[in-house]
């Protein structure tokens, strides 16, 4: 029981990170109907940039509690700015010119982009070693229960931080999508791009902003990933990227609450699977979920069934 609770806490933490990445996939898919393969790489770049900023700030002003807080804030702000510009640029360079092209073109372009970004980071940041790490950033913990045989369930401060940041961000994000004119424009483009443009919505701009917002959330996920694992590799975009995509599909692609729900489920399933079944096959389990979900219920848990339009 205690082990289960501990794993549940870990699963929810990991799931929050997946959920944040999944939103980027689901939003882009909702609005232009393509899988942005490069999104996982954007997340990875967010994490790498955070690491660099964190190291820069802590070498300058030390590692006191205040300094770490300031460093993480800097990571968030600069990380969000850089990845937003990055994803905006990716959309403008690699996807927008292909919007009217044949249907494999944006996919192949996205795949090439993802590959180029990953190897770019590999070449210039991971020349000597395949990963970079920092000392644990947040270390405190709160014991919450102890079992009869002495197993202590703890709530790490970093778990609390990750879940807290996720909740705050999702609230802001939800407000943005539901209550602002930008959100309305987004939902309008999702339903019918041509009609939206006839009604005076700048579709190109809306799509570009969607990419930027998705990247901002991925950057936050990157910072949280760094806080959680304290280590980053250029390879970290691919597998978490597919897992987040699985989360988006599981929750129902196009649905924002679905992406978060899917993220949490995938996080919990992954942690539970590696704890109770086999940690060797945890990736296989998640990929198998992806295949099964797509076959059995392609609309996901909260999504709407897809209608094929001519």
């Amino acid at each position: 029981m205690e082990v289960f609770v501990q794993q549940l806490i870990n699963g929810i933490t990991l799931g929050s990170v997946y959920g944040l990445i999944a939103i980027g996939y689901t939003m882009v898919f909702g609005i232009i109907g393509m899988v942005n393969f490069a999104h996982g790489e954007v997340f990875m770049i967010g994490a790498v940039i955070s690491l660099i900023i964190y190291v820069m700030v802590t070498t300058v002003i030390g590692v006191s509690a205040g300094a770490i807080f300031f460093a993480l804030m800097m990571c968030l702000v600069i990380g969000i700015l850089t990845t937003s510009i990055l994803n905006w640029a990716i959309e403008k360079v690699a996807y927008r010119p292909l919007r009217g092209s044949f249907r494999l073109a944006p996919l192949i372009s996205a795949l090439g982009m993802s590959y180029a970004l990953k190897n770019f980071v590999n070449i210039y940041q991971f020349e000597r070693s395949s990963n970079k790490s920092v000392p644990s950033i947040i270390t405190g913990n709160i014991p919450i229960m102890t079992s009869s045989d002495g197993f202590e369930v703890v709530l790490n401060d970093k778990n609390i931080l990750i879940v807290l940041v996720t909740v705050v961000l999702l609230t802001i994000f939800w407000y943005l999508v539901q209550k602002t004119s930008l959100g309305r424009a987004q939902r309008a483009c999702e339903q019918d791009r041509k009609m939206a443009s006839l009604l005076g919505i700048d579709v190109d701009r809306t799509i570009a902003i969607t990419f930027a917002i998705g990247a901002a959330l991925a950057a936050v996920a990157g910072v949280l990933y760094l806080v959680y694992y304290s280590t980053v590799s250029y390879n970290d975009g691919t597998v978490p990227g597919i897992k987040a995509f699985t989360a988006a599909v599981l929750g129902g692609i196009g649905s924002l609450p679905g992406a978060v729900l899917g993220g949490l489920l995938i996080g919990i399933i992954e942690i539970m699977w590696s704890n109770y079944v086999s940690s060797d096959y945890k990736d296989v389990a998640v990929f198998a979920i992806l295949i099964v979900v797509l076959i059995m219920m392609p609309q996901g848990i909260l999504g709407k069934p897809e209608v094929e339009k001519v």
Binding site: G33, M34, V35, L107, D280, V284, F287, A288, L290, I291
Partner: peptide, 28 residues
């Protein structure tokens, strides 16, 4: 058989996942 009724994008991801599953099984 099951996945080919999926849209192009989904098919790409599923085949990617399949490739990783095969490799992962070969490793483990």
């Amino acid at each position: 058989f099951p996945v080919l009724r999926l849209r192009g994008d989904y098919l790409a991801v599923v085949t990617l996942a399949f490739g990783e599953i095969i490799r992962s099984v070969a490793v483990n």
